[in-house]
Design a protein around this nucleic acid. Structure first.
Length: 230
DNA sequence: CCAGACGTTGTT
DNA sequence: GTCTGG
DNA sequence: CCAGACGTTGTT
DNA sequence: GTCTGG
């Protein structure tokens, strides 16, 4: 689940204030089909400063020999995150959110991909944890994992798992730099009020990671498969 | 003690 | 680095 | 998540 | 069949 998402924003000036920023210091080309291992915009606190920068999607721990992984680390199960060597110490102190304007889910059984969005929000957030890896040259590289949880009743029509989707207004409650209690934040990620979502079927061409164009967002001509408003 | 893993999803 | 399995 | 590789030697 | 790369 949630092995792909999108962030095709061009009007960052309108978006940044929503997430607590007035500027950004990197170039970003709109992305319609984002796959694991690529660099994605992430919001987090570093030195008490709210920060927006890109990170590798797919967490690499500091002790890794290289900035790659043989394991699937782009997702972390919220229910068991505190028991995992890779993630447990991060929940208390290295929380983050990825920015997204949709995520993709392949329906169980039919294999039909859907684009899923938040009702009333152009851009929303995905709860995540991050870590920092230091290369032999001393350079630092950050990476992240999206938290997943069991599907809610709506999502269950498509899939049995889903990412922890946050409205922009809920981002502060996940990042809150004052809280270092991992259990408390785990409970938040499992039980906060999930925003209303809607979904529509899209072309299977997004299965190919090299496909990354506006056509990815075009609904299939199949109104019956649409789920939710907007 | 040391060696080896460190992760998720989906499908059968 | 730290935990688990043997 | 899906797609694509999965291998070696030697030559340019 | 299974792993890696995007």
């Amino acid at each position: 689940m949630c092995g792909r998402f999108s962030l095709a924003v061009t009007d960052w000036a309108a978006l940044l204030p929503q997430f607590g920023f007035d500027s950004m210091d990197f170039y970003y080309a709109p992305r319609y089909n984002i796959a694991p291992t690529t660099e994605v915009p992430v919001v987090f606190f570093a030195e008490r400063q709210r920060t927006l920068q890109t990170m590798r999607w797919g967490l690499i721990p500091p002790w890794s020999d290289s900035f790659t992984s043989r394991y699937a680390t782009h997702l972390a199960r919220t229910e068991s995150v505190l028991e995992k060597r890779l993630y447990s110490r991060l929940v208390g102190r290295q929380r983050a959110v990825l920015l997204a304007d949709g995520f993709y889910e392949w329906q169980t059984g039919s294999r039909q991909p859907y684009r899923i969005r938040v009702q009333g929000e152009e851009v929303f957030a995905l709860a995540a944890v991050y870590d920092v890896w230091r290369g032999a040259d001393g350079g630092e590289r950050a990476s992240c994992s999206i938290l997943t949880r069991p599907a809610n009743a709506w999502m269950a029509h498509i899939h049995d798992r889903m990412p922890a989707v946050l409205r922009a207004s809920q981002v502060d409650a996940w990042l809150r730099p004052d809280c270092t209690d991992a259990s408390e934040m785990q409970q938040f990620a499992l039980h906060y009020d999930m925003p209303e979502l809607y979904a529509y079927p899209v072309s299977g061409r997004i299965g190919n990671v090299r496909v990354d164009d506006a056509e990815c967002f075009v609904p299939l001509k199949d109104d019956a498969s649409r789920m939710g408003g907007q």
